[in-house]
Each structure stands twice: as structure tokens, then as C-alpha cells.
Design a protein around this nucleic acid. Structure first.
Lengths: 409, 409
DNA sequence: CTGAAAGCGCTAACAA
DNA sequence: TTGTTAGCGCTTTCAG
């Protein structure tokens, strides 16, 4: 490691020219077998590893793709103390029985938020696809202030960049995209000339809602929104509305619909659920009169007339908050109320009851993003691409198929 | 994006020399404010992003660290069909109610194995620490055959490399480490001159086992091993043995211990558990006579005399397999038998009962690895470092503190 | 404070 | 089949 050997060293050692060394490494078949092995031997003998930087420079190609993700939650931890690392004489016994299943995990002073696992999937997808296409993958996550620096830094080292929506300001993207192709992920409101890969929020929510509405005895539905400035919320809301309209057109004119404001957070979901349980609340909807027909197998009429037959939430976190409250209040889900989410986060697989939701193909997002970049690399003139990935509805216990009915699309 | 602007373009545009452009970007204070802004303006106007490759070459420093992880499970998927991506008219409704909580998740043809989430933690830790130290992070995962190529490839592009144990053959590591510092993660049997960061398997298992043995009425214990060629298994087994020896020395001479062969897999755990339940089995141990004193609050004596008071497993997967079988057989855990694992995988947080285990600080592993590399980068002469990270015992329902007793270390 | 010039290690014509 | 020779775009002395 004293002084990394170069092509020149290898060439000298093998008594050939540097060009031949290069050839052996890149197009081995263009070299006579004997010379080839001789060179290879020298490579091994000297411990030669070609410099990626030099390659990139000479070849005008880095062979690297970049992925920019939203930042982690816990960043500003103090500089760690090395000393503690070698002292393993005291193993703490932590009583973890109280830990909330869906909450963050304490790990030696850090916090790992399950919601982040989400992006890990994107990363894995991108990683796999990158290498398959012959590219290495460089990752970076948003760090508030230094974001600009990082993006610029990474942009100079890669042949293409995939960026998760809302993590990088538009002007920065514009700047960077003058040098390399940039693809924006999971953004449904493209206002630029970049390539976009998004997920079909509208169709997903339409399908899910249709399923919910087709369930037996569903006549009163609450939709819990996300923040009003979210494009995701807008799309999902539209999907919900379309399903409602479809249902009404198909003979469900008496369907009652109410809209409650959420904010994509668990707490937001809790608030809405509590309001629904509070006696006295009840209207604010846009629908017709009270639900037609009594519910079968309904639980206790907690919350009386305020409680709908189904709560359709704009995302999983919200739905989990709703489940929290219903669970604590003894409301039978799905017996009395059905609850659905959107996203397909892990926590939804472990809630009680497990959450029916729309799963976004995060891994696929990462893969398609990479493909998209590679594509543009080969054909830079191509008009901006907009790929929308299909989603899938996962029917779980919070709104199971047995209570539902016809297959919808 | 036609032709990326270079320092020359910027220099010309700003009417300065390329050296000045470089200075503005690297040591802005060495340049008169007026020229500086002039250059900066040109940078913006031209959409200039410095080439990482050229920088790396000229500066003999990539500013990038590499992380090599074990491969993903699902790799050999067919080349995806682009057509399907734009057809989102049919949203599938998947009945996900039967899905095993701890099993893989089906996602549009791919499988995402929760066990992998494990390494994601390492990745996040490394990512955070890298950027904090001023390095970008490049990731790669083992792909059976092409591994050698990838490692070499990545090695040429980074200033240092962190590798998860057993993912790269020793000779390859040796080769690469002649060029850049290499740190091996989670490997407890360093047979090389490289830096190592590992986890305290011995102390962790010793602490956990001591806790188990100190529990009321624990007189008959089964240890389920990992594969015999695993260094982790060796260490954990040693920790177990030490705890047993300690217990015996402290008046537990009648402690009965049996060792069953596992293989770190869930199925392995299942097999052992089934054997334990099978009537007729019973010995094979090394311990003294039957357990002293009747168990309190014990459930039905399923499996009769073969069933121990506690099953200590070499890893979580094994323990989850054991829990599977016990659960199905109606064996009360922890009432009748206590079960423990090792690793701290997510699935253990969601099993029934939730699994008591030793948590490895995966995120910390990634962070420390990076620190370790940076350290060696600044002081290449340093003797090989061996850092052992402390673990922590997570007491959950499968072997809770109430049934246990004294605090151990 | 700014400019000129010499590489950094490799690839890719073009020759031989 | 192999060698020669330009650069690739930037950092960095060393002068001015």
C-alpha cells in the first residue's frame, strides 16, 4: 500500500507496453494468450488494481450511478467515544417488553425508524440493477444544509443520478441535469423536463376504495387525507373520488362519504379516529342520508352514529394511528369498521389487525430508475420519459376479502 | 448535457485561469472576492459540475469509501418487460392474510427477505459516517461469480473498503488491501493483517445465558448450535459454556446441559424443537441428573422428560423455528420453556412471544468501520486494529426478566 | 492574489 | 498482435 502500482509498473514488470496491459484488462481476447498470462501474472505479483479515477477520466465514463435518498432521522449525534468500543465487559440487560411493535428501536443510543426501511428497498433495487447493467452505485442521503454540496459532489462522480422526490430543490436538479441524466422518483407532478418514475397512486387508491365500497354493508365511508400540499395526497384523493363516483353510478346513490383532514402522520390518524369516536360528532360529510341497511356482525356501537363502516386513509401511518385508537377503544376492526392504508410499509404487516393497503413497488422503483438512466445514457435525445409503476392491493385483516366482494380493477 | 463544461470553459467565461477556477472551488478564501463571485457566476451560467474522476486523478484521492455486502437473495430474475410498466389498468387484489409474519414479502414477482434488513442497518451507519467524514459511499453486494470483478472494480474507485465477513475470499482481500485500506466487519477470527471490527459474541452469549440460568427453576438447558464451521457459532458456544461453568461453580452443580445441532436456519430450529417434543428422546446431554425442583406454573408436560426448561439458540432464526414448533404444539413459552436467540433481527420483535435475544449493533458496525478506515488513511503505519463492539441483551417475552433474577454481566 | 505548466493513471486511436 | 502517443479535467507547485 506504500505506493499503488500503475499500468507502467505492470507494463515494465511484464515487459510489454501500457497499452497491452490496458488491453488485457479490457479486451483480453485481443491479446495473445501468452502475453496475456504474463501480464496477468504481473498484475497479481504487483497487487495491481486499476485506478477508477484514471479510467473515468480517460474513458469519459465513470461507470457509476448515483442515488440520492431522503435523510436519516438521527444525524446529530455527538462524536462517538472510541473508548467505549473496547469495553465490552458490561453487557446491558434491557427490558424490551414494553417496546411498541411499530415504534422505533433503541439501539445503543441510536434510533432506527422502521419507516426508513422503505427507502432501503429502493436502494436494493437500484443496487441490483446497477451492477447488472455494469455500473457501481453510489448512495447519499439528504443532510439538510450540506445537501447542495453533496448533490454536486456526487453528480461529478457519476454518469447518472436518481433522486427521490422532494429531496432536492428543483434548481439544483436543473443545474446537475445539464451534466448528467437525472431521474426523479415517486414524483407524480413533473413540472420539469426530467425523466420521472412514479407510482400509480390514482389507480391504486381507486382499486382499493372500490374494493372497500363493494364490501357488504358499506354505506358510510370516511376518507382521511394527507397534507393538502402533497401531490401524493392529491392523486390518492382523486382515486378515492373516482371510486366513489363509480360506485354511485353503479347504484350506490345512497353512499355517504365524509372527508377528514390528516397529515400522513400516525398522530394525525389518531386524532381523526378520536374525533370519530367522540359522541356528538357526526356530519361534515357530503353524502346522502344514513347508511342503508344494518351492519351484520357489527360490534358494540361505540361512538354511535359518528362511526363509519370504513375508514380509508391516505397512507399507512395514518391508518395505523386509526387502528391504535380503535383498538384501545375496543372497536372491532374489521367487524365494525374497516380500515385501509396506502404504501405497504412493514409496520402494516405487524399491526393488529394487519393492515389492508396498497403496496408501492419500492424495489421496482429503484430498478426502473436505473434502467431509465441507462436508457437515456444510450439515447440522450429521447423526450422526457414518464413511467408509472403499477401498484398492488394487499388485502389483510383490517379489511379482508371475505367481507368484501367482487373483484375490481 | 451536450458537452459537459470544464474548468477551461469556466475560466474562459470568467476571464481567469483554470487555476483560479480550481481555487475558487477548493479554497475560496485564497481568491479576491470579486474574482470569486465572477467565477461562481460563470459556474452557474455554464452549469458547471467538476469531474470527480479528474479530481480523483489529480488529487490522488477519490473521496469515496466502499462497502461490500453479502448478496441479495433474489438475483436471477428475467430481464423485466418494459411494457408491463406502463399498463397500470389492472391492479391486482392480493389476499395477503395468510402471509407468515416473519416470511418474505411477495412484491410483484420479487421477494424481499427481512433478514436482509439487517445489512441495511450497516449500510445506513456507514453512509452517515462516511458523509460526516467527507466521503461518499459506494455500495456493492456479492454476486456469486462476478464477485471478484466487482471487488476489484470498486477497489479502484475508493480510498478504503469495508467488507462483510465471508463475502470476499481472503486472497482477493489481500490483493486489494495492497492498494487501499480494508476493514473486515463482523469477523471474529482474524487470520490476517487487516483491520477488523467485530461484535462481542462471547460476552453477549455469556451474559444472556447467565441470565437464563439465573432464572427460577432452570435446571435443564438445551443449546442449539450453528453450523460447526462458523466462527460466530464457535464464539457463542464458548460464551454459553462459560456461563454454564460459572453457574456450576456458583452452586449449580446439578445443572443439566444438552447440545443439539442446528445450522442457523429456521428449519434447523424446527427440527430440534420437534426432536425435543418427540416422546422417547431425552438424553444426549452432558449434564447431571434430572432437573432439581419442579417447575412452577408449568404448562402441560408436552414431550415429557425431553423438554428442557430453556432452549438457548445460537441465532434468532433458529430460535424462531423453535418458537414455531412450540407454538403449534401448545407448549407455553416462557411458562414451560424459555427460548432465546442471538442477533436481534426484526422478525424477533414480531414473533409470539417476542424473542429475547442479543442485539448486535449493526448500525454501529457500519459507522465504526468507516471511522476505522479513515483512521488508517491518516495513519497508514498503525498496527492492525481489532475493535470489538459491545452488544446488548434484549429481554422480551420469550424469556422475560420476571422469570429471571439477578442482573448479570 | 493570479497564471503557467507539469503531471495524476488510464484509454483509444493510429502506427508499426 | 503490440507499441506510440495524445489527451481526459483537475490539482498543485512555482513564478510573477
Amino acid at each position: 500500500m506504500t505506493k499503488a502500482p500503475t499500468v507502467y509498473d505492470v507494463a515494465a514488470h511484464a515487459a510489454v507496453s501500457i497499452a497491452t496491459v490496458s488491453r488485457v484488462l479490457r479486451r483480453p481476447d485481443d491479446v495473445r494468450p501468452e502475453t496475456r498470462t504474463r501480464v496477468l501474472d504481473s498484475v497479481r505479483a504487483l497487487g495491481y488494481v486499476p485506478s477508477g479515477a484514471a479510467r473515468g477520466l480517460a474513458g469519459r465514463r465513470h461507470g457509476v450511478l448515483g442515488l440520492f435518498l431522503p435523510g436519516h432521522d438521527a444525524i446529530d449525534e455527538p462524536e462517538p467515544d472510541w473508548a467505549v468500543l473496547t469495553d465490552s465487559s458490561r453487557i446491558p440487560l434491557l427490558d424490551d417488553r414494553e417496546a411498541r411493535v411499530a415504534g422505533p428501536v433503541a439501539t445503543g443510543g441510536h434510533w432506527s425508524n422502521p419507516a426508513n426501511l422503505y427507502f432501503d428497498e429502493v436502494l436494493r433495487g437500484a443496487e441490483v440493477e446497477s451492477w447488472r447493467r455494469g455500473f457501481a452505485l453510489m448512495v447519499a442521503a439528504g443532510r439538510g444544509s450540506s445537501r447542495e454540496v453533496i448533490v454536486n459532489d456526487i453528480a461529478g462522480r457519476v454518469d447518472g443520478l436518481a433522486v427521490l422526490a422532494q429531496t432536492v430543490p428543483a434548481d439544483l436538479l436543473a443545474h446537475v441535469s445539464r451534466r448528467i441524466p437525472v431521474v426523479v422518483l415517486a414524483d407524480s407532478r413533473p413540472g420539469d423536463e426530467l425523466d420521472h418514475v412514479s407510482v400509480d397512486n390514482v389507480a391504486g387508491m381507486r382499486a382499493l376504495t372500490s374494493f372497500v365500497l363493494d364490501g357488504r354493508g358499506v354505506a358510510d365511508v370516511v376518507y382521511v387525507t394527507g397534507p393538502s400540499d402533497s401531490p401524493d395526497e392529491a392523486d390518492r384523493h382523486r382515486g378515492f373520488d373516482e371510486a366513489v363516483a363509480g360506485r354511485r353510478a353503479a347504484g350506490g346513490a345512497d353512499l355517504r362519504v365524509r372527508v377528514e383532514r390528516g397529515d400522513f402522520s400516525r398522530d394525525g390518524g389518531r386524532r381523526v379516529a378520536e374525533a370519530l369516536l367522540a359522541p356528538g360528532s357526526g356530519s361534515a360529510g357530503d353524502g346522502a342520508g344514513a347508511g342503508a341497511g344494518a351492519r351484520d356482525g357489527a360490534g358494540p356501537a361505540v361512538g354511535g352514529r359518528a362511526l363509519p363502516d370504513a375508514v380509508v386513509c391516505a397512507n399507512d401511518q395514518t391508518a395505523l394511528g386509526v387502528l391504535d385508537v380503535f383498538d384501545r377503544a375496543g372497536v372491532d376492526v374489521p367487524g365494525r369498521v374497516r380500515v385501509t392504508g396506502f404504501d405497504g410499509i412493514e409496520a402494516g404487516r405487524f399491526s393488529t389487525p394487519r393492515l389492508t393497503t396498497v403496496r408501492q413497488p419500492m424495489g421496482e422503483l429503484g430498478r426502473v430508475a436505473v434502467r431509465s438512466i441507462v436508457r437515456r445514457l444510450t439515447d440522450p435525445g429521447m423526450p422526457p420519459q414518464r413511467v408509472t409503476l403499477p401498484v398492488e392491493v394487499l388485502l389483510r385483516e383490517s379489511c379482508p376479502p371475505l367481507l368484501g366482494s367482487a373483484r375490481t380493477s
